[in-house]
């Protein structure tokens, strides 16, 4: 994710050590915990998440914002709750 003013992450899901489809299941279950318009992050080493988090957004009508990394270097995928 680029831009100097990164939006605050309202909920960070620690999915380290989980394999597909568990990170996306976690996202599907818990994104409703943040208000519409807020950002949820999924932190996982699962290589499938790079494709499946954007695919989940497309299928579920949410907005995929991009990828950065958590402090420990693990990939972090950012999603805005649209509905």
């Amino acid at each position: 994710m680029t831009g100097d003013e990164q939006e605050p992450v309202a909920l960070e899901l620690d999915c380290r050590g989980m394999l597909c489809p568990l990170p996306v299941i976690e996202l599907g279950r818990r994104h409703v915990e943040v208000p519409v318009g807020a950002v949820v992050a999924v932190v996982t080493e699962d290589p499938a998440a790079r494709t499946d988090v954007p695919a989940w957004c497309r299928m579920r009508g949410q907005e995929y914002l991009g990828e950065d990394s958590a402090a420990d270097g693990v990939a972090r995928y950012l999603v805005r709750r649209v509905g």
Partner: peptide
Amino acid sequence: ACTASTLEPSHVLAAMGALTH
């Protein structure tokens, strides 16, 4: 990915942006 020995998802599905699980 869970059906592959490498635990990597299909590069075909990934290149298409299709759901891999």
